[in-house]
Structure formats: C-alpha cells, structure tokens
Write a protein that binds this DNA or RNA. Structure first.
Lengths: 238, 238
DNA sequence: CAAAATCTTTGTCCCAGCGCAAACTCCGGC
DNA sequence: GCCGGAGTTTGCGCTGGGACAAAGATTTTG
C-alpha cells in the first residue's frame, strides 16, 4: 500500500487525484476543481466503520487509497463479507440505487483515505458531470455481478474451492508482486477469509496449512503470499 | 395466474397495462401510447428462456404477467437460481448497469407475457421519460439487496432454515390465498426449490414431507400451500 | 519486559445433509 | 385406458467440515 500522510489534514487536494478515476475521467480540470473543493477528505485507521448499515446516507464516498470490506451483520452477530472494494471506486452510493440508508456496513481493511460529499450533491453530480452516472452504474453492475458469482460459488463449490477462489480474487484485485510470489496487499486474517467464504477460521487455517505444506502459498500472521497461482486455479476448479 | 390469450398477437395494447407500473406511472397517456407503439408483445410458455446469459442484449423487457427465474448455469451444468422476478418489473436491463450482454439467463417459471423494446431505445427512455430511470435504479437496488440477503443466508443458515425462508419469500411475493392457507402462485418443483436454496431435491423433499406431517404445509406435485406461516417463520429463524 | 490481547494451529468428535439407489405417483398423450 | 416421462418419496451409508477445546505464536500495551 502506498505511504500516505497520516492523520493530519492532507495538503490541498490535487486534481490529479481524481482525473484518472473513471467517474471523473471525462471531466475538465475546472470541474474537477469544483468537485474537490466540495469534498471532505479523511483518513481512517484499519478496522473502523466508514458508515453503518441502516444509517441515513448523509454522504457518499470515493475511496482514494486502501481497501474496504462491505460487510453485513446477522441477527446473531456473525459477520458476512459481501464485497471487497479497492481504491478508486465510489462507495456508499445509496442514492444510486434509490435508497436513503446504507444497505451494508463499510469497514476499512487497511488504513484508508476517503473523499466524501454530502448526499444532496448527488443529483448535481449525476446531471452535470459527463460520464459520472454511466460509470457509476457500471460500478453497480460490477458489484451485482460479483454478488451473483459468489452465490453461484457458494451454491456449487466445496469449501476448499471457495477459499482458493477468494484468495485468487484477492490477489487479482489487490495483489502485489513480491520476491517469490504475489502477496495480498493488505492484512487479512483467517477469520476474514472465513467470513468471505462462509466457513470457519479453523477450516481456513487447516486449508492454508495444507497448501503451505504443498508449497502453494506461504503465510504469516495476517499475510498471505501465493507462490503457485496456477495450482490454486486448478484447486479452485474442483 | 390470469388467463391470457395464448400465442396469437394480443389485441391492441391498452395504456392501462403500463400506467400503474412504477417505471411508467408518472407518464402521460400520450407518452405511454408512444412507448406501447414501439413495444413488441410476446407470450412465452413455462420453462423457456427469454434471453440467455452472455447473449448480446438486443432488447429489454417488461414482464406483464407471470414469473421469471433468473438463473445461472455453472461450468458443470448445474443451475443456480439467483432471483425470482414477479410481474410488473423490468428485466434484461443490461444497459442500466453498463453491460452489452445479459448477465444471466431468464427462464419463465410460468406462462408469461412480456413486452420488449430494442436496446437502442434505452437511452431515450432514460432521458425522456420522467421517473423512468429513478424507478429502474430502485429495481436494481432491490435486486442487489436480495442477492445480498441470499449470500448472508447461505453463509449463516442451515438448509432447513434456508428452505423455509425461500418458501416464505415466495408466498410473500407471489402468494395467493386459498381455502386453508396461502399457495405459491406458480408451479414449483422440489428441484426448483433446491436450486434456490443451494441444496438437493432430495433434501427439499424430505423437509417438505416433514413439514407436511407437522401440518405446516401441504403439497402436491408442483404445488405448495403454506398452512401455518408463523410456524415457518419460527423455523426459519433457527 | 512482562502481561494481555490477538491470531494461528492442531486434535478429536460428530452429525447435517449429500450421493446413490430404488420404488412410487401423478399426469398427459396416443 | 395404457404407457412413458416427469416429479416425488424414502432408505442407507458416508464424509466434509463444523463445534469444541487447548496450546502456541506473535504483536501490542502498560
């Protein structure tokens, strides 16, 4: 993950922050300037909630750096992770789907930097900024597709395959090349993985141990490095 | 389900068909007339595909009567049902989420009647018709929410609870009061239910038999009647 | 640097529910 | 009214992986 100035207010926001991000990429410098001037920037430590399921959606967000887990909490207190959102995507866009409250909780999976705007600006963004709404709906579509895939996965695959898939997805989205393989770019516990794959941390632990013995992965506390992605792909296919 | 003229062309489409459906409800008679004049109406027998996953999205649809299952087929040929869509909703709206192909297959769960328009009209509908896009995105949001719920459900509930939930959802969406309870308003097999709940038809059969012995439901071939919804709710809570 | 908290590993037990197999029932068609 | 196919029921054996338990390892805190 990139190094970022922590805690203290960021220096005046630079246009280049947004220029290359799809929802804004068609805009002119002047427009981006206006958007930035209305934004609030904030840094969150790992493991805190950016917003909570059910809360009134007072703001919408752009994740500038870090990763966010979208989780839902069941009546019995279990957490289920629905999605991982990488930097560069909008989140908390309840308005885009006609809701006034957030449909899930967003927790930082790493220290993260986020811009946000009051929801009342949503309508203006949609109507005034070329490409904003199109790109937004592409994001929504992508997430729909991912949820759909996870349902199919959970319905048809065994735990080992699901975990393999989850790890592969994570290294695709967030992988970083390291000396001897590809490492998941943020700290992730067995528990986290189990919440992503609908199993228990014990089972995940056993699987990772097994894979490590076979030389497919290497893992320390909160870190997973994939040494042999291809073998994992094979595993994930059943 | 209503009786409908089969196969042959329907009589001239009446404005009242659309007037009360959310995406069109804010429109004036004249606008609805124009929309109808551009629509193709078609009746589908039960069990056929309206469109297939991956196909180029040449048209989008409004389900006027019947029920549609949104299914995905895995590499190994298993079917997983992601959603049930009741009459009155749009479907095949790939354009709304920035896609050019359909993200899943839509199969009729009953004989159904569907209007459709060429995708190239999508842009015009969105820009010209007041409320159309808002309502459409609400639909998308609703589906996102449902998928989300199903993930949570599959991640945390036992099979019996999932099946109970599925049955309850179906009677909520599509239930019809009959003499001694509420019946699911379309033919549904054990197999269908198992595809909705990620289990096997055998397990579903056993569960239904059990429930029937306890007097909670009554079922014949392709028909399920819930006699004691409350008891099912209790079951579904674990 | 000791103590506490967090994360991980591993062992043992056990059962929900799947796979397989076979029989039964209902329905539509000829 | 009989036949064939689709849908359903039920029995039985097996196993993936969850539950519970406990100990180790690593990091954080005071």
């Amino acid at each position: 993950m990139n190094e970022l100035p922590s805690r203290k207010t960021l220096p005046r926001l630079d246009e280049s922050l947004l220029k290359h991000l799809p929802p804004f990429s068609r805009l002119e410098r002047r427009e981006i300037r206006a958007i930035l001037d209305q934004a609030t920037s904030r840094r969150y430590d790992v493991g805190v909630a950016i917003f909570d399921e059910g809360a009134v959606a007072e703001r919408f967000f752009m994740l500038l750096d870090g990763y966010v887990r979208v989780v839902r909490i069941t009546p019995t207190g279990e957490q289920v992770t629905a999605l991982h959102i990488p930097a560069g995507q909008l989140l908390g866009i309840a308005k885009a789907i006609g809701k006034d409250t957030y449909p899930a909780t967003a927790m930082t999976a790493t220290d993260s930097v986020v811009l946000s705007w009051p929801t009342r600006l949503w309508g203006r963004f949609v109507s005034e900024y070329d490409g904003f709404s199109t790109e937004t709906y592409k994001t929504v579509g992508k997430r729909l597709g991912e949820l759909n895939n996870r349902i199919v996965e959970m319905a048809t695959l065994q735990v080992e395959q699901r975990v393999a898939n989850a790890v592969l997805r994570l290294i695709n989205q967030t992988g970083r090349k390291v000396e001897d393989g590809i490492e998941i770019d943020f700290p992730i516990t067995r528990q986290d993985l189990s919440e992503l794959t609908a199993t228990t941390l014990h089972t995940v632990s056993r699987l990772l141990s097994g894979w490590e013995k076979q030389g497919l992965v290497q893992s320390k506390r909160k870190r997973i490095t994939v040494l042999d992605p291809h073998a994992l792909v094979v595993l994930s296919q059943g």
